[in-house]
């Protein structure tokens, strides 16, 4: 997800200057990493260069000058296209450090893969407890609840995979050591 697309989405709600846009984003997605202001600024320049956004006004209210940006027709079309496309399903298998460690533990003989999976489960559940506390606090905004749910369901998927792996460690060990 590029910062440019995120900014197009934020600008669709109405013109704003860089700091406005950062604030809109950070308020809407409190669990996400805050947008870095420098990144917002350079991305806005790029959107203007590509004709996706344009200067709406330059105000100074007696203070420093602030440039407000708005979406162009083309920017609006680009946003529409981006929002209409599915997000590519993440290639999680390539980046599965848990699987890599299990395999390396078997191959090296450094430790016990079953004990490692138990340790990993405890770490996952500890994180899931924190996220559950975040989402069940009275008056938690729906944005926080849904962010926490997203993380919880992914951690839960890891745990299911780990349960499967734990039951097949013997066969995996044969495969790894015979290779």
């Amino acid at each position: 997800m590029s910062t440019g697309n995120v900014l197009l989405g934020l600008l669709a709600a109405g013109p704003g200057h860089g700091y406005d846009l950062k604030r809109r984003h950070d308020e809407r997605f409190p669990e996400a990493r805050p947008l870095a202001y420098g990144q917002v600024y350079t991305s806005l320049q790029r959107l203007v260069r590509d004709g996706l956004a344009e200067v709406d006004a330059t105000e100074s209210d007696g203070g420093p000058e602030r440039t407000t940006y708005r979406l162009t027709e083309r920017g609006s079309l680009t946003l529409r296209t981006w929002l209409g496309e599915p997000v590519p399903p993440a290639p999680v298998s390539a980046a599965n450090e848990i699987f890599a460690k299990v395999t390396a533990i078997i191959a090296s003989g450094f430790g016990d893969p079953a004990a490692f999976l138990r340790l990993q489960r405890a770490a996952h559940l500890a994180r899931m407890r924190e996220l559950t506390a975040v989402k069940t606090v009275a008056g938690a905004p729906l944005s926080a609840v849904l962010s926490a749910d997203y993380a919880l369901t992914h951690l839960d998927a890891d745990l299911r995979w780990m349960d499967n792996a734990a039951q097949r460690l013997g066969a995996l060990a044969e495969e790894v050591t015979s290779a």
Binding site: R118, A122, L125, M128, T132, T136, L152, T153
Partner: peptide, 20 residues
Amino acid sequence: AQIAAYADREATVRDGVVET
């Protein structure tokens, strides 16, 4: 596991014994 995350701690059972 998502229900277990409401608890303060977890015990896992396997083959009739408490494993962790």
